[in-house]
Design a protein around this nucleic acid. Sequence first.
DNA 1: AGCTTATTTACCCGTTTGGGTTATGCTTTA
DNA 2: TAAAGCATAACCCAAACGGGTAAATAAGCT
Lengths: 225, 225
Amino acid sequence: MTDKIKVVLVDDQCLCRQGLSELLSNCYGFDVLGATGSIDELRTLLDQKPDLLIVDLRMKPLDGISLLEQLRSEGYLTPAVMLTMSDSEIDLGNAIRAGVRGYLLKDMAPDEVVDAIRRVAAGELVVAPTMTVKMIEMLRGDQPEQGPKDSFKLLTEREREILQLLSRGESNKAIALTLHISYDTVKQHVRHILNKLNLSSRVKAAVLFTKEQGMSNNEEPLTRN
Amino acid sequence: MTDKIKVVLVDDQCLCRQGLSELLSNCYGFDVLGATGSIDELRTLLDQKPDLLIVDLRMKPLDGISLLEQLRSEGYLTPAVMLTMSDSEIDLGNAIRAGVRGYLLKDMAPDEVVDAIRRVAAGELVVAPTMTVKMIEMLRGDQPEQGPKDSFKLLTEREREILQLLSRGESNKAIALTLHISYDTVKQHVRHILNKLNLSSRVKAAVLFTKEQGMSNNEEPLTRN
DNA sequence: AGCTTATTTACCCGTTTGGGTTATGCTTTA
DNA sequence: TAAAGCATAACCCAAACGGGTAAATAAGCT
């Protein structure tokens, strides 16, 4: 008989943490070393050499993927499963590229989750059934995905216009003045941009856009203020 | 006898605006069409076809240079004088590149200012005496300036490290976690970065850095959250 | 005539930023 | 030894931002 599977849960939402912790603790074969939303606490838990990390994707201030990348860069290579609410293929892609061994959805049935985790621990690579469809679409090149360039096509003309100003470092208020529209409208556009590009801050949007734009146009320097 | 010089003052600080307005109004040969800190009001003033704009550099939300660029792009080519507190050679450089006909300092003696404005209106290109030194230094290549690449040399190693994370879209809190230092320390570093690069927002810093970095390293995609 | 999408505006709320200031160790340089 | 620079940290405050929600108008498609 194999040893119990030692898992550590990382989620900044206390409820999910506790829920899954309960669930796994009551299942045969699991040893929940700890459940935390704090990186520092996570580090101490890692000393107990878990077999598997179960990580939430959307966390503040550091999302699951960045967290994993950081741990990897520090030498912690413990396999990880992403457990998240997001059914976005973009998130899935990012997670896979970050090397997770599983991508599970929080709305899966409890036993499905447990089963999936068990399979990952056994070495399988498990993706939530709902997501496999999206994976196939991605691979089939339905939307070649990958290239963020394509993401920009999702934006409307106006949104691209705003993204451009945003990428020049202009504040929402400044953009409003420039385009002669209200501050609230700009905010709304920015919200849409962030949603469509699946980003969470204007800085990321600006950087992404800048990279894609290429340094083709190096005209005006960024000005103070 | 020539007509009076029709000037429009643009400054978001009411005091300076009024002060200069008073000053010029009491001088022979000036016709102050208006003094405003609002862009909309400025537009209506422009209908009176001023001969000269006197613009402050540091204004919120749109700085003087951006403002000028915007006006230029709309077809208003009225000559402009920059009147500012900043004795930074970087600001001077930006202003000159933006095509201002004069760069004056707010701490110049009143009659000097008036005189300088008169000369600009007459077609001269006037730079505050204090600043000419800096101009010469710039030209002499003391710091070849220009290339923002050089600006980064002003940053310490730590600051560059933080700028890099900042340019990945990480929040101050996330950077703090990543580097295992306090949130306040990160803020302090960011402040220094913005000061040294003469920028006013992390977005500008991120974009600048991204452009300089070149898209050489396209590894990790920006992740949600 | 309905339906969808794009654009616009507004309000509320909590978090993040930017700026000012102060201060303590540590290293390097004058 | 003194001065200067760096990394660290803390506190305060006002402004900006991100997210949720709602809604009005216009244009286009079915």
